[in-house]
Write a protein that binds this DNA or RNA. Structure first.
Lengths: 164, 164
DNA sequence: ATAGCGCATTAACCCGGGTTAAAAACGTGA
DNA sequence: TCACGTTTTTAACCCGGGTTAATGCGCTAT
């Protein structure tokens, strides 16, 4: 399945129980607050998988939106079917365990960064760990991913450059 | 297995591939930075499970420490054995999938709180979602869990009370 | 070519929270 | 009861980043 730049896979509040495997392209998952502020949960690159856990569990709708920043090729998997199959398929269940373990480590890293690092340190870490991303994504979006405003990130950037 | 208040199950840097199921008591998992600052990753209550993912994966040592705040009864599970068994045991693998899904949702919630909420909102949320915890844990520790300093939390508390 | 839009930078001002230090409140054990 | 250590509060000062708004830059579409 293919999607253009700017196309949404689902919007916050939608009921979507799909899991998307990104084969190509670049997407962003983001929260939108009541007063219209955007917060970026993650960027998705080829090989990544994403879906709204809340949506899958039927806990109300999706808690965030998913949109293409670059044209994307995706594989869509129905969560209910996957889950049902895993109940009788040892290999599938094992794959899910492995995937979820890797996922948990990623989430733990991001938690660590918010809990223990300053905005400036998070920016440095991002540059080190995801070089190239900065060139494909607007600075606005980088800022909203790091938990600061675009104006704030502009200042951090200048500070970092001046120090270098 | 039993542990007294103040006893550590493991320290940051240790190699410990155990998973601990909390049957009773209260523990905290925390990071210690190079310059000696403490950041609390989570509080553990009866029914919770915890272990260092990094430790389990053999990715170097544990990334955090685990200590009892109140005397605790625990069940200790060897990760390598559990994982090996799950490869041939559909029911076990399914239980692990279920556990990991629930775990992922919890981590996602915490990520959301750091990304989208202010310190004051995180404090309010904690009081709502974990009433009683505030009475069992020092305000110092609550602060370090919320990502502010004890002095900062004292101010937030006063602001909240004044507004109420 | 130019009008218009979104992005990035800069400046001025403000505010939440960090830091340090001191004082007050609270427990706990001798 | 008193003394001590820990927790919490308060105060003063500082700084990072939010907010708003202006400026400039680079697209893209007409």
């Amino acid at each position: 399945m293919d999607r253009q730049r700017g196309q949404h896979l689902f919007h916050q509040g939608d009921t979507d129980k799909s899991i998307y495997l990104i084969r190509n392209g670049l997407l962003k998952a983001y929260y939108l607050s009541d007063d219209g502020k955007e917060y970026i949960k993650s960027f998705l690159l080829p090989g990544d998988m994403i879906g709204s856990l809340k949506g899958m569990m039927g806990d109300g709708g999706c808690s965030f939106s998913l949109v293409c920043l670059e044209p994307a090729e995706l594989t869509c998997i129905d969560y209910d079917i996957l889950y049902a199959r895993s109940r009788n398929d040892l290999n599938l269940a094992n794959s899910m365990v492995d995937f979820l373990l890797a996922f948990a480590m990623k989430k733990e890293t991001r938690e660590f960064e918010f809990l223990c690092l300053t905005a400036e340190e998070r920016y440095q870490t991002l540059i080190d760990k995801a070089p190239g991303l900065v060139d494909r994504v607007t600075q606005n979006d980088i800022a909203r991913y790091l938990g600061v405003t675009p104006v704030g990130l502009s200042r951090i950037k200048k500070r970092v450059e001046r120090a270098a």
